[in-house]
Computed example of a mutant assay.
Amino acid sequence: MKTEHVNQIAAAINAVKATEVKNVYFVACGGSMASLATGDYFLNREIEIPSRVYTSNEFVHVNPPGLGEGSVVILRSHSGTTPETVAAAKFAREKGAVTIAISMEVDSPLCQEAEFTVHYNYKDGSDAIDGETGVYYSLIFGILNAVSPNEKYERVLNQLNNLETLFESNRKLTYDRAFQFGSEYKRDKLIYTMGSGAYYHQAYSFTSCLLMEMLWIHSNAIHSGEYFHGPFEATDFDVPFLIIKGEGATRPLDERAINFAQKFSKKVEVVDVAELDYTGIDEDLKEYFGPALAGVVLRQYADGLAEHTGHPLSVRRYMWKMEY
């Protein structure tokens, strides 16, 4: 990892170490919120300090009563210009919280408002360890190790060096199926997505940012555990589902949902995270690396749909084109 990133992450972690942490808030919008939510899942699995994910505008308007000194607020915006997230950083810092901004643009308004900045490379062809996943995982597991030292977290940090190789190998592993999926589902105007645990956030990101925002395909992200509490009534032979079969504690929830969906729908696509390549990753760490690998694979599924629908992922109707 580049020295600048190491130093930025170390400064943020040291600030957390110096704080008697009473709570952690993850604050962002859209895909950035979904990526931060993975960290929230890890914290909830590993330590007793309460944490919560907020969409940025709600965070400011709700004004959580626990927010203040002893709070750690982690914010993210890819461009660093999302107005709601910039406002949330300013709001949290004024409340006395430790604020950590994650962005591609180090000189962005978000990074100017936050006390600490963690920058990731995006445009210069840097490998994954200096990209958004490597930098964010380094921050989250560094914080975990600072708050509750564990050799497991140190192993995660060491094995992050395998990310670039794993991203590439899993793209190759799933390329044919992802583009075949694009061919098979190119005429579908609605595709439901499903997942659980950390993978629910991947389903949400795929739904909101890739299917709805970028491809204009109607969708809804369904938690596998909630499927049987209403949504399964929409299941029929021609209703498409993309279901993430996760690696970790909630996998049985996904298996139950898959078994039911496949009985009544002829259009169920399963992305089994356990079948991905984990070379260089310890068995007990797969649950942590799985969401990152799933994100790369799902992006390829979106590329397959874009290719076969003739709808580029860069096309927008409203976003960045008008006031809203």
Rank of each mutant, 00 (worst) to 15 (best):
161 N>V: 14
10 A>H: 13
173 L>Q: 15
21 V>P: 03
9 I>M: 04
154 E>T: 14
31 G>T: 10
126 S>N: 06
88 A>V: 05
150 N>Y: 07
96 G>F: 12
267 K>M: 09
185 Y>W: 12
296 V>Q: 08
56 S>H: 09
288 Y>K: 07
316 R>P: 01
137 Y>C: 08
160 L>N: 14
84 E>D: 12
266 K>T: 13
53 V>M: 11
173 L>P: 00
280 G>I: 09
48 E>L: 11
199 Y>M: 05
303 D>M: 13
129 I>C: 06
276 L>I: 04
44 N>H: 14
256 R>F: 07
183 S>G: 10
288 Y>R: 04
90 K>I: 08
140 I>F: 15
231 P>Y: 10
222 I>V: 14
23 N>M: 08
184 E>T: 11
26 F>P: 00
212 M>W: 12
141 F>A: 03
124 D>T: 13
199 Y>K: 03
115 E>T: 11
265 S>A: 06
122 Y>I: 08
176 D>E: 15
71 S>R: 01
69 E>K: 12
322 M>V: 12
105 E>D: 14
270 V>C: 07
12 A>V: 00
65 P>V: 15
316 R>F: 11
45 R>P: 03
284 D>H: 13
116 F>L: 07
253 L>Q: 10
2 K>M: 08
147 V>H: 00
83 P>C: 06
79 S>Y: 07
143 I>R: 01
131 G>E: 06
84 E>Q: 13
282 D>S: 14
101 A>F: 01
77 S>I: 02
252 P>I: 02
225 G>D: 05
163 L>G: 03
23 N>H: 12
202 Q>N: 15
75 L>R: 05
139 L>G: 00
220 N>H: 11
197 G>H: 10
301 Y>A: 01
162 N>E: 15
63 N>Y: 05
256 R>L: 13
253 L>I: 09
112 Q>L: 09
30 G>R: 01
102 I>K: 01
156 V>L: 10
263 K>Y: 08
168 E>P: 00
198 A>S: 15
154 E>Y: 05
155 R>W: 05
9 I>F: 02
47 I>C: 11
16 V>W: 02
112 Q>N: 12
224 S>L: 02
292 A>G: 02
284 D>W: 09
124 D>R: 14
254 D>L: 04
12 A>I: 07
3 T>M: 07
65 P>G: 09
186 K>M: 07
240 P>A: 12
237 F>E: 14
191 I>T: 00
318 Y>G: 03
138 S>F: 02
229 H>R: 04
12 A>N: 02
109 P>V: 11
83 P>M: 10
185 Y>F: 15
83 P>E: 12
158 N>K: 15
194 M>A: 04
205 S>M: 10
230 G>I: 09
244 I>P: 00
